[in-house]
């Protein structure tokens, strides 16, 4: 492959004054902003309606304020997941091996941004709304798997980060030569492991049905979530794969000031 300078390869259109490898920066920041607005909005909604309408699942207002939110979330997430994953698949690069080093580097930046948005979604699910569940269980008497906080944490936040993780996986698989030639084990672990957290909701709810209705967070019925969370460590392997490839690519380019 011909060795070229970065300057000569600068064929892509810059967004504003951004460097060529950060072409997707605004989309990335936009993703953070949208996710922040969604989650802050959901939290405000909980603050406004949870005590007023979310304490008993048998009341009609519970259907109006919470189950409709639940169904709305399902429909929205399924639609967006289908749309996003289809888009990533149908717009795939049919010949990623032909990429220039520069284009491939830019796509590595894009993949890192996808994974970063994925981890931002993991933050809301695994940190904020997960622990908030303990707080809400000090208010509500458990009477449904669809509590005002479960509807946000289990049935929105978990599928949402799965959507983002799946997108990152598909992006890598369809656009980057190294990830297209073989299936990255760490990327697969980092996406499929946390996916199992959603599946663990079944174990959790089964346990609460058969054992206890109080909220003891360190209980074994919650450890399915824990094990799923460990797979986040595989992001370290993705970093190593990316760094190895990107330093190779950088070495193929001439220095530019």
């Amino acid at each position: 492959m011909a060795v070229t300078t970065l300057e000569k390869l600068d064929g892509t259109t810059n967004a504003g004054n951004l460097p060529w490898y950060l072409k997707d920066l605004y989309k990335y920041l936009g993703g953070f902003a949208v996710i922040t607005v969604i989650y802050v909005g959901l939290r405000l909604y909980q603050g406004a309606y949870a005590v007023a309408t979310g304490l008993d699942s048998t009341l009609p207002e519970y259907d109006a304020y919470w189950m409709r939110l639940f169904y709305g979330e399902l429909i929205t997430l399924m639609s967006f997941t289908a749309g996003l994953w289809s888009y990533l698949w149908f717009t795939r690069d049919r010949n990623p091996a032909a990429l220039t080093p520069k284009a491939e580097l830019r796509r590595h930046f894009a993949l890192t941004m996808w994974i970063s948005i994925y981890t931002f979604a993991v933050y809301w699910a695994g940190s904020y709304f997960a622990e908030q569940d303990n707080s809400w269980h000090q208010v509500v008497i458990r009477d449904t798997p669809f509590t005002a906080n479960h509807i946000v944490v289990f049935y929105f936040s978990f599928p949402f980060y799965i959507m983002m993780g799946g997108s990152a996986w598909l992006y890598a698989r369809t656009r980057l030569p190294t990830f297209a030639q073989g299936i990255s084990l760490p990327l697969t672990l980092a996406v499929f492991g946390p996916f199992m957290i959603l599946v663990s909701v079944g174990f959790n709810e089964w346990g609460h049905t058969f054992w206890f209705r109080e909220e003891f967070f360190a209980a074994p019925i919650h450890w399915g979530f824990v094990i799923g969370g460990w797979f986040a460590l595989a992001v370290g392997g993705i970093l190593l794969q990316e760094v190895a490839r990107m330093t190779e690519l950088l070495d193929k380019l001439e220095d530019a000031s």
């Binding site: 008993d56 509500v140 008497i141």
Partner: peptide, 15 residues
């Protein structure tokens, strides 16, 4: 939310 009458049940019916 101010227009909503606050719930008077607390999940007891599920038991």
């Amino acid at each position: 939310a101010a227009g909503i009458s606050v719930a008077h049940a607390h999940g007891e019916k599920a038991l």
